[in-house]
Design a protein around this nucleic acid. Sequence first.
DNA 1: CGCCTGCTTGACCTCGCTCAAGGCCCGTGG
DNA 2: CCACGGGCCTTGAGCGAGGTCAAGCAGGCG
Lengths: 242, 242
Amino acid sequence: MAYPHPLIAKFERELTLSVAENQAVSAIAIRPLKFVRNYDLVRKGNRSLHCVMILAGLAGTSKTDGSGKRQTIAFHMSGDMPDLQSLHLDVNDSDVRAISDCTATFIEHSTLRSLCEQYPRIGATLWRDTLVHSSIFREWVVNVGSRPALKRVAHLLCETMKRAQWLGLSDEMTCDFPVTQTDLSDATGLSIVHVNRMLQDLRKRELISFVHGKLTIHNWSDLCSLAGFEDTYLHQPRQSDV
Amino acid sequence: MAYPHPLIAKFERELTLSVAENQAVSAIAIRPLKFVRNYDLVRKGNRSLHCVMILAGLAGTSKTDGSGKRQTIAFHMSGDMPDLQSLHLDVNDSDVRAISDCTATFIEHSTLRSLCEQYPRIGATLWRDTLVHSSIFREWVVNVGSRPALKRVAHLLCETMKRAQWLGLSDEMTCDFPVTQTDLSDATGLSIVHVNRMLQDLRKRELISFVHGKLTIHNWSDLCSLAGFEDTYLHQPRQSDV
DNA sequence: CGCCTGCTTGACCTCGCTCAAGGCCCGTGG
DNA sequence: CCACGGGCCTTGAGCGAGGTCAAGCAGGCG
């Protein structure tokens, strides 16, 4: 593989692996697979025998109601494991869909389970990972439940940038965010038309640029205060803690 | 204690404990404490050294923005552990508040951690518990993000009843739900006035009664189909699986 | 070239919010 | 005992944020 082992990279963001842990994780074979946009990596109602790990591109967890209206619940960037919960929940409660063309890999439940048993620190790190995502869901409830449209869009962009930075996927205040306005509409619970107007508003205020799936934030602190964005819920260790 | 050990009850809903596991859990002393309505059991920004377990009454996880607007993110009934995530997340990202007068107990992180280490099945069960709550958060994003007011309220009531039943806190289709309309407003992202009108609507349709914190659902299947409620996201094992 | 997808704009409408007031119940104090 | 006050629920009236509908435009691709 050209790139370093993605699981090692994931764990090393949180802790320093022992030699034994490193070996055990490295032994997990990663077969990158390509998926076209809109492909369903995980389907609601199915039972999984493996977890997905995103290696490149953007994926999203969503649910669709009877009328076809889709609500996106989370975005997943490279390094994320969108359905890690399937390790302990028998049936999938949401879909995971490739929002852009994606590269991903599947890791067997059995592999992850024995890793957790043998190396408790790794188990704790994976548990923690699901808890961080849980915290992000909580913030999304707040976002769609109580913020007006402009703040709602702004908040989503702040979160995206902060997560991309944390994962080493940003260049200063620019990162990939290959979503259409329809995707943003699904994620914010706003209509497409209104998302469009909110983005224009943010551009007019010279807070962001957003073209061809590239997001740039021109004035981080102003955007944060507009959005009411505070990053504690992302639970990213401070630099000093690492 | 008059009642059976609440942790034993919690675990036994998911699995059959071995003698050793049972002894280890039983050894954990439960000191019930009383809290008046509106008391903050957990405060955002603090670091916890213990987890809360609700023994009686209703609690809620919520976040409050600068302007004082509160968004409730979850309700917790007796047997729930609202801040189990604090076991692996250093700083609290939300408040946990007594919504009615409550009885609760605190369990030291260290106690839970050593339990998880020594008895992996217990660790897995606790992990699973956090994942089920995570799934409920996902559904709440859908609820506040994409359901119109009437469905939104109806869905919340369906969820409440189903969870109460699962926890053995219901009598047929009646259960305690000691919330004010203001609390429902915080949970649904609707105004108090509109919650009031939606409740009246549901009562007029003879789907529910809801007085003095007692909820009765008169027509379960009609309320479910009105709400678009499907219970898979609650991940309650089928009777046959138990 | 023509089509399809995604972005943009304008006009209109509605669901749910805000503001305001009144009623009921209960706890507290005179 | 009654008076008062404070939650909480209820109702009405008006308004506005955001949805819906409709149309045009631009870019990419077969």
